[in-house]
Design a protein around this nucleic acid. Structure first.
Lengths: 179, 179
DNA sequence: CCCAAATGATCAAACGTTTGATGAAAAAGA
DNA sequence: TCTTTTTCATCAAACGTTTGATCATTTGGG
């Protein structure tokens, strides 16, 4: 255990995890240091991946990752109700509603009221949306590949397994989900 | 390999990963499915943890996770230059600038110009900020603990190791970082 | 010493997200 | 059938973030 007590001005995004965990452990006897380290590391790793993908793939093309997620879902699964889109792309109905304004304005998808239920909304890719998604996905996947190469194939599978187990455990943890 | 081709309306946040990977694999021979699965899973797991922590710990107290990260850094490492705070809490200087408006308005920290360099900003917790952070951190850490229990101790260590290796590999991947 | 380049911070516009409220349509109950 | 409840979508206000521009200060080169 490296007793890293670096002065504040030498701390970096990376070294802060160790610094914080050790310092918290020392000053707060009741802290769950391992849980702290896990969540801290999980967030930092994801934050780096997200920032990279967003700034190298999506923003240069005038897109955002959330917008990409919606278009990607429609591309793979076909036209669907907005409620389903929100569910599978991991956003609230209100967030999707706002996001749709942008995507519709940019001519990437259309929203129309469903025939069987006039409250519901049916989303479909436009020709333009359909034409654009493949290229963006390819660039996105190339970037994902570069990240994935940091791990051995076996390690990638293990990482996925552990993350899935973590998600499965959210039920026991009585985690709060998006409504 | 479960050939899950569920109709769109039965898809969920969870099942979409499998569905998307299989469908992409089938329709796009050149796709790197393992990389896709890894990034998709990483983001969904983190998104769930973030939403839970944010909505059960921070927002009910009138805080946000980003604000908490800043106050937490100042609490652990003491007063420091804003540039350092941005670096170790993982945000751009511009984002921190905006965030500081809120934190300062709420009386949780103060910003003053540094004496040795009149461009620089020195951040310090106020009494109120210092008094509030411990309780919030305790609640935060309790929630982290609940999540951590989904994994065995050995699995937690392995997850952290894999995530660190992923972060370390970002150099090879020539990932883009925040400036 | 003076001027050009680099650095620290802020601002502005656009965007996605959250919570809580409102409106409209459908479902459930009396 | 009529009323109450539930469901789907949107809106409004507040917030954090991004990119690109601007301003002030400091550093470094002639």
């Amino acid at each position: 255990m490296t007793h890293n007590t670096a002065p504040p001005d030498e701390l970096t995004f990376w070294s802060f995890v160790d610094y914080a965990v050790h310092k918290a452990e020392r000053e707060l006897p009741t802290v769950n240091a391992e849980a702290m380290r896990m969540v801290l590391t999980l967030n930092r790793a994801t934050s780096m991946v997200v920032y990279d993908l967003e700034s190298t793939v999506h923003r240069p093309r005038g897109w955002t990752w959330p917008g990409f997620r919606v278009l990607f879902a429609l591309w793979l699964a076909g036209p669907m109700e907005a409620k389903t889109t929100a569910e599978i792309s991991g956003m609230s109905r209100a967030a999707l509603s706002a996001l749709l304004n942008t995507l519709e304005r940019d001519g990437l998808l259309t929203r129309e009221r469903a025939v069987h239920d006039r409250r519901a909304l049916q989303l479909s890719l436009t020709e333009a949306g359909y034409g654009a998604i493949l290229g963006v996905f390819r660039a996105h996947n190339r970037r994902e590949s570069a990240w994935a190469e940091a791990l051995e194939p076996e390690e990638r599978r293990e990482l996925v397994r552990l993350l899935n187990k973590l998600m499965a455990g959210s039920t026991d943890a009585q985690a709060k989900f998006r409504s």
